[in-house]
Design a protein around this nucleic acid. Structure first.
Lengths: 180, 180
DNA sequence: TGATACTTTCAGTATATATTGAAATTACAG
DNA sequence: CTGTAATTTCAATATATACTGAAAGTATCA
């Protein structure tokens, strides 16, 4: 492979890996994903091990996670018992997947907890008077603010995901008008 | 403080801390922030150390980061040389801050890199023919897809931030129509 | 100016997370 | 079934990140 392209791919893989932490996936998972995304041809475990210089175990576990996340797929070639892998080429599907998982893993548990925190305060509030009650009401108010905000965001994200890939430009247009 | 409320606050602090990793801030930073958000009264370093059972050094560094992020503020009481801290109570401002920082730290570097990767491919493409050129064009296409998607998202986030707190409900309403 | 109260820094250490590699397991072809 | 190639698992290990605490630094007051 020519050198400018090699550079391009390795740059892409490296940067994708650096960003991994932010997206809640490990560096290796992200690098493997980037490599597959950059390579339309299916790759097998050994290809990946060689190109990224990582162990067989790590490769196996990371590939499994990526399949679980729905970011890559297994491919079989007839007459060859090796497994090959390809990345999902649809960028929208990629981010929709990640967003859905994060929604479920991050936003929903927080919402549950904040609701429970609010209920615990409500148990106690009627029994109190004066300064202590005032402080508590302030805390309770903040929990409510948080709750309202988070549910609004969750709803918007949900609507957004339903819009699908073609919705991106429409949303852009609509928002542009709202801002103006 | 009554026990149901104690439970409520410690639950809130713990959960906020667990979510920290996802948001790119450390557990302690998140816990301190949660504690301050849950406590409308300003707290000093010793209050925080005591309540979260963490060291002075850790407290000091985390508080500084939180101030840098714009998530909390320093407060001074006359006749007292201690520094006190309060959380920004505005939930919208909180998330707008985090979003802006993540945009700058994550989305922009990725965009720069992907553009550079594309340019490197374009350097090489005209010199190639046949299968190799086809593979390369596929890679180049994927970089373009990614670029288009990321710039669209960046634009939307930007518009969103400009809308401010009152825009949340309007966006919700508008999106709801788009989906229907 | 010195004494005191408070804050910051950072080398050392602890903790959490990711990775290796070899053994165990599975899947397939003959 | 048997032998072999491929994959998975997981205890040991490496690496990255966060935390501690004591020493150094800074600000304020008498």
């Amino acid at each position: 492979m020519p050198t400018a392209v090699e550079q391009s791919k390795s740059l892409f893989v490296r940067r994708w890996g650096e960003m991994a932490a932010y997206w809640g996936i490990s560096r290796t998972m992200a690098e493997i994903h980037a490599l597959l995304y950059a390579t339309p041809t299916p790759l097998c475990t050994d290809d990946i091990m060689a190109q990224l210089a990582i162990s067989r175990g790590n490769t196996s576990m990371s590939l499994r996670s990526l399949v679980d996340w729905g970011l890559i797929e297994r491919v079989h070639h007839r007459g060859d018992r090796k497994e090959y892998f390809v990345a999902n080429a649809d960028v929208w599907a990629l981010f929709a997947n990640i967003t859905r998982q994060r929604q479920r893993r991050e936003v929903e548990p927080i919402l549950d907890t904040v609701r429970r925190c609010r209920d615990l305060v409500d148990e106690e509030l009627p029994r109190l008077k004066g300064d202590e009650a005032a402080d508590l009401r302030a805390y309770r108010q903040r929990l409510d603010d948080m709750l309202e905000f988070l549910t609004a965001v969750a709803r918007i994200v949900d609507l957004f995901l339903r819009l699908g890939p073609k919705g991106l430009k429409r949303v852009n247009g609509v928002l542009r008008k709202l801002v103006a």
